[in-house]
Amino acid sequence: MRNQLRIGTRASLLAVTQSTWVKIQIESTCPGTQVELVKITTKGDRILDVPLAKVGGKGLFVKEIEDALLAGAIDLAVHSMKDVPTELPEGLHIGIIPARETPCDAFLSTRYASVEELPTGACIGTSSLRRKAQLATLRPDLTILDLRGNVDTRLRKLEEGEFDAIILAGAGLHRLGKTDKITTLLTPEQMLPAIGQGALGIELRETDTELLAGLQFLHHRATAVTVAAERAFLLRLEGGCQVPIGAHATLSGDQITLTGLIAAVDGSIVLKEHITGSAREAAALGTALAESLLSKGGKAILDAVYCTGS
């Protein structure tokens, strides 16, 4: 391993916390290596007054970091996998995927114990079309409002009474040491997670084979296999992280089970199926599941989303 490494990361508290965890793992496993964090502001971080789904484009939280990687300004990048587009710039790859945190969404409220307990007309906040669509199916009587900002900003808005409840990724709250803020975790059956939610990805230059070998101790096969199935599903749907698509894969022995979802933003249509097969066929299973949902009305749903930009 090299004596010095530079990790590119978003400047948000969660991103820095995630990258700091990687830094600690490297420095403790490779005592002769010093790791520096290089904080980079992305387009998604700069635009805070517009719902992400209306900003458009893919890679809102990774492009500037990837540019720095290609330019040699950093040696590796740490991303939340749910932010990473399925198609990467030439010369880069996600070489390492550590063990996944919980993939589940978290329900947070200062007054109510669950989504079911919210009164009619209650205001619930989320910036995700995937969450909005599934909430609209679970509770069509709720008022679903956009919620942007970092985790602390979102928690403050909840605590100040701006929302009756909010939905955040459970993994981020766990990593920030804010598990006590979670009222309950929503099961994948209640709300299917985003593709790659809870997983980190370490992006490298393809030519850095020695660095890739040195970081293998961080790689977690089961997480990599399940994320590969989910991302193949997303790739076939040509979706980004801001469309009403969800997927969640689990591994049992050598068998992988993948559940996928395409939904209308208003929750009026929800297409959901699962597929099971060999872990060796993870990507093929993701593609097959996407084809099935597209043929059953998913294409029309996604066309409508892309045309309206909502």
Results as ranks from 00 to 15, higher is better:
R6M: 05
I7K: 03
I7A: 00
T9Y: 02
T9F: 02
T9D: 07
R10C: 02
R10F: 00
A11F: 00
S12W: 00
S12M: 00
S12P: 05
S12G: 03
L13A: 07
L13Y: 08
A15R: 13
A15V: 04
V16A: 00
T17A: 15
Q18I: 13
Q18H: 11
Q18D: 14
T20M: 07
K23P: 14
I24M: 05
Q25G: 05
I26W: 14
I26L: 07
E27T: 12
E27G: 11
S28Q: 15
S28Y: 12
T29G: 01
P31Q: 05
P31W: 04
T33W: 11
Q34V: 08
Q34E: 02
V35F: 09
V35E: 09
V35Q: 13
V38C: 01
K39G: 00
T41H: 03
T41D: 12
T42S: 13
K43P: 06
K43N: 09
K43L: 10
K43E: 14
D45E: 15
D45Y: 01
D45Q: 02
D49F: 06
D49T: 15
D49N: 15
L52N: 12
A53Y: 03
A53P: 00
K54I: 13
G56Y: 01
G56C: 01
K58S: 04
K58R: 02
G59E: 07
L60A: 07
V62M: 03
V62F: 04
K63M: 09
K63F: 05
K63P: 08
E64R: 06
D67C: 05
A68N: 08
L69T: 12
L69I: 09
L70H: 03
A71W: 08
G72D: 06
I74R: 03
I74G: 07
D75W: 09
D75V: 07
L76A: 00
A77S: 10
A77H: 06
V78C: 13
V78W: 04
H79F: 15
H79L: 04
S80F: 02
S80Y: 05
S80T: 11
M81V: 13
K82S: 14
V84L: 06
V84Y: 04
V84D: 10
P85H: 08
T86K: 01
L88F: 11
E90H: 10
L92N: 11
H93Q: 12
I94G: 07
I94L: 09
I94Q: 06
I97N: 02
P98D: 13
R100F: 05
E101N: 12
E101D: 04
T102K: 02
A106C: 10
A106Y: 10
F107N: 03
S109H: 10
S109A: 04
T110P: 08
T110N: 13
T110H: 08
A113L: 10
A113V: 14
A113R: 15
S114P: 14
S114Y: 15
V115S: 06
V115N: 08
E116P: 10
E116M: 11
E116Q: 14
E117D: 13
L118D: 09
L118M: 07
L118V: 12
P119H: 09
T120L: 04
G121Q: 10
A122S: 06
I124T: 11
G125K: 00
G125M: 01
T126G: 09
S127H: 12
